[in-house]
Design a protein around this nucleic acid. Structure first.
Lengths: 345, 345
DNA sequence: TAGGAAATCGAAAACGTTTTCGGTAAAATC
DNA sequence: GATTTTACCGAAAACGTTTTCGATTTCCTA
């Protein structure tokens, strides 16, 4: 029941290991006859090359690493699916790690993947990550790295993102177009680029429409993984602080759903009293009531694009060509549902 | 910028590779002085053992494979999280593959993992899997394999499951206890053991309460990944066929939510006209309206338990001890919410 | 001080593959 | 018939580690 090796095939056939190896890989300098013989025996013996040995020889593992902040998450699990399916097509396997929004863990995991000698790394940053030396070290070792969704602008590498600012602008403009006069924003954590850009989009839309920008209408929350609860809490606070708000642009669907739950409980009517726009288009958003107007964020496509770019860089590096970094920006669109009023024509 | 090897450290220090290796692994037969020297140099040079070489020597990769039917799925992504976090604690990495509910793919992926020589495999079967020879081959090669959630009873290996039959019984009993007189069942696909057991639990509860069992009230659907749509379709059909049904036990929350969406649209009141119990306790179920009564299925714990068992078997096999297969049954409980009426006391 | 015990080290084989390079035999060329 | 070309094969090194086993030195004890 031991695993078959080249040596055993060679001995069976009374030829050298070299020839067996070459036969299996269709080298031109082995006769069709022996090729056929070797291949047949390999098949009947169910020969599987020893990956460990191959890796050692070729210095590549056909494996990539993936680090994401959370796994149980509609958007991120879509990304995983995109990456895994694309990788499989190209003969790559993917190792998954979850940073839990912690910088410390993220750092350790990068280290782990580096000693595992994966061929490349895909990462979406933790909220807590403000220092990027661990990423820079990956790059300095010439290991392909591409960031997606939650990225660091300063780090010089390929990135796959959406135009968060534009999408947020769109969302806010939609609130304005449907008659909202005083618009709040739940922005979540402070650090992530996403969060910043969405906030900036919100602000710009206000100013472009001659709405005053009021910082007290922007709600921040550094509560880690508690998105749903965060929405509830922010909603409560908002009702206390500002009873004149009639529209909210919320960073993430899950937070939005938390807020809606609270509003429903308190008898605040959506969208009559308050309109809400979320972000990401979780499946859930289409089945709650009222259904949530939101920005569609293409997770699957993002995963696919991220892997494709990584794959390209792995190949470039292998041929020791200079790698060209790319910033890929995917399209988003507003999905109009029931949580916002109809357009005023 | 090349990777540091034992050889380089040895040359730096004018000692042998052997000693360097042993020093780093705290062998007793190297003096404290040289140990310190080696360790210090290793640290300053940032030495990382070459995993490929280690794997080749030790014949293990500290990596396990995980095959699941779908990734974008509340239950399964919880399982992934449980597995990954537990594995990381024990120094194991996990490779994820998605079978897409296809037997063919599942088979190929098992093959892939075997040639990758992972140390063990965790799997939840595809709906389409009726033949188990690919799994038996894994076991015959003495490679640890544990199945979870969607299992095959015939295959002799460790399993982590819930008592589906009991849980379904509980769910159906709850419908009866809250006054339902005619109870339907949406059972989804035919093949999976889950589906069978939940159906049996449903049936037994009926009979134990002297309710007639009516096969026409059991709705089957072989529509692959379309759970939500399946719920809608079944609901439509049910309204046409049986307008006297006042309770449904539904296989999966997502299907239940599809059904509820349809009932809401058609003005059927939940739970006044029809009570509904789902299965799995997706997060979503707690935020839709009405909130869904369901069976809590502990995904995270299941993942954790599955990895722990696999880890145990990997260790046993390493010591060439006989592996003892275990069937671990996790607790479930009914989560009472708004989609069912209050108990009749 | 001889003897063995304890402490410390290193040579070398092994893991299984890939690839370079040279060698031989057969076929083609003149 | 001598020479070149072509076709086919294999020896051997290399990838970087782990581990066995023997060798050497130092230390202790009688």
């Amino acid at each position: 029941m031991k695993q078959i090796t080249l040596k055993q095939i060679a001995e069976h056939l009374n030829i050298s290991i070299t020839t067996v190896s070459k036969a299996l890989k269709d080298y031109p300098d082995v006769s069709p006859k022996t090729k056929a013989l070797v291949k047949e025996l390999a098949k009947t013996l169910n020969y599987k090359p020893n990956t460990f040995a191959v890796n050692l020889r070729t210095k590549e593992s056909k494996t990539i690493g993936l680090i994401i902040p959370v796994i149980v998450h509609h958007f991120f699990s879509s990304v995983i699916k995109g990456i895994v399916s694309q990788a499989e097509k190209k003969g790559y396997l993917v190792i998954i790690l979850q940073s839990n929004e912690s910088y410390e863990l993220e750092k350790k995991q990068i280290d782990l993947l580096m000693s595992q000698r994966v061929d490349g790394i895909l990462i979406s940053l933790a909220n807590g990550t403000a220092d990027f030396s661990h990423l820079k070290e990956v790059l300095s070792q010439d290991k392909p790295l591409v960031m997606f969704d939650k990225i660091a602008k300063i780090v010089k590498c390929s990135k796959v993102i959406i135009d968060d600012r534009k999408a947020a602008y769109l969302a806010t403009q939609h609130l304005i177009d449907t008659g909202c006069k005083r618009i709040a924003h739940f922005r979540g954590a402070l650090l992530p680029q996403n969060s910043i850009d969405r906030f900036l989009g919100y602000k710009k839309a206000l100013l472009d429409n001659n709405f005053p920008y009021d910082p007290s209408l922007v709600y921040i929350c550094e509560c880690g993984d508690m998105s749903f609860e965060e929405g509830k809490k922010n909603a409560q606070q908002l009702l206390k602080d500002h009873n004149d708000v009639d529209g909210i642009f919320i960073n993430t669907d899950l937070v939005a759903i938390g807020a809606m739950t609270e509003f429903n409980k308190q008898g605040v009517k959506i969208p009559e009293d308050i309109s809400i726009v979320g972000f990401s288009n979780w499946f859930m958003s289409s089945v709650i009531s009222p259904t949530l107007t939101t920005i569609d964020q293409p997770g699957y496509e993002m995963g696919k694009a991220a892997f494709k770019q990584l794959f390209k860089e792995i190949k470039q590096r292998k041929k020791s060509k200079p790698v060209v970094f790319k910033e890929i920006v995917l399209d988003t669109k507003l999905v109009k549902r029931e949580s916002t009023k109809e357009m005023v024509v």
